[in-house]
Design a protein around this nucleic acid. Structure first.
Length: 132
RNA sequence: CGAGUCGGUCAGACGAUCGCUUCCUGGCAGCGUUUACGUGGUUCGGGGGGAGGAAAGUCCGGGCUCCAUAGGGCAGAGUGCCAGGUAACGCCUGGGGGGCGAGAGCCUACGGAAAGUGCAACAGAAAGGAUACCGCCUGGUUCGCCAGGUAAGGGUGAAAAGGUGCGGUAAGAGCGCACCGCGCGGCUGGCAACAGGCGUGGCGAUGGUAAACCCCACUCGGAGCAAGACCAAAUAGGAAUCCGUUAGCUGUGGCCCGCAGUGGAUUCGGGUAGGUCGCUACAGGCAGGUGGUGACACCUGUCGCAGAUGAAUGAUCGUCCACGACAGAACCCGGCUUAUCGACCGACUCACUAA
């Protein structure tokens, strides 16, 4: 419990693992952060930390090398984020043009969108709005 | 040194910190239990491995798996000079023919048009068992032209029915001769493709196109790891309607035969899309030897070289330089094709200078 600040690993507990996990986020997201190159969806979970899922469609990023690069960068970013008091399941969707960004640009975009997402979720009060 | 041809190798390097995955190993929870011990994990250490020459396009060929022991015929598809290599190929090697280049070399779907069918705009006199516009020659003539001979010359066209030369002739013509080309028949060399002589036919019949239909020869059963197997669970079981009962239906794409199985179709309602295996050790890499012109084969030694599954192989910083291209495994191999910043090695050709 009480996932520590120095917890920077990224095992299977930190990832969305099957279709159920994904559709839970898609069907009723608590928060969203949109950018012209990507979209973040989030839903509170009852676990000890954030979990990340990635949807990088071939339609939006043509080359496999770029798709892998985006996934790695996104994982790296979420790995290094400190866990907040309200853990979430987050899904990152790629949009067109992400493949053209370099690593530094992508990182700064992720930083910005993540902050937006955190503000959103703290506003919508994690404890009470458990179900609708 | 300059220009070029062919073959091969590499695919930024080093360090620090933080991660991912897999294997080995040690500790520590948990579980089984007679202390031993076994098992074992969203746990903590230590150590090892972790994308490519194209991983790509999915264009061929295999292995493997299932369908039915994959058997006969049709249809369909593919291949197409010869001989080897190989598990196999549309690949590779060697050879032959043709073409390009000064050369090293490179390119080449390269079987059949005297089985048949089709196609060829325009131009042109005539385009396939053709034809005579101008011209040339002979004869006649009312001097306008007419009859006949001819295919050398002009003109048209992508292509005009052997070519060049000499003889010949009224002018011409394989009409005759020489050489070349072509057809046919021996001979010699070669496993063969084919090459080289020799003889023969005057060549009024063999024009082109077969990545047009077609003919001939040879090859091919189908589907793919979401193949397929197993585990707890599930496919169960149920209701309604319609069709059928020596048939029909099902069985990987077509049809017929053969073979195997069996009532079938639709709708309603219900349930699954968890885990393990397949999954990486091999037509395997490297070194040496033997045989072969070579592709390659055989022998000996040695090495262990990714196995993910919402999908690992990365991020940041520092230093250096020739400032880093194309690009990411998904069952596995052999090829082909396409993309690609550059660096290096070997063999060879041409030109120039020097010796």
């Amino acid at each position: 419990m009480a996932s520590s600040i120095a917890d920077h690993n990224f095992g299977s507990a930190k990832r969305l693992l099957n279709a159920k996990d994904y559709s839970r986020v898609f069907d009723d997201p608590d928060a969203r952060a949109s950018h012209r190159n990507l979209l973040l969806l989030a839903k509170h979970n009852d676990r000890t930390g954030h979990r990340l899922g990635l949807v990088i469609a071939k339609k939006h990023v043509r080359l496999a090398v770029d798709r892998n690069r985006i996934k790695r960068l996104a994982r790296e970013f979420f790995r290094t984020q400190p866990s907040t008091e309200s853990p979430m399941d987050v899904v990152l969707l790629a949009r067109g043009g992400v493949g053209k960004l370099d690593n530094a640009e992508l990182s700064s975009i992720l930083q910005l969108q993540w902050q937006k997402l955190v503000r959103h979720t703290t506003k919508t009060e994690p404890g009470t709005s458990q179900d609708s």
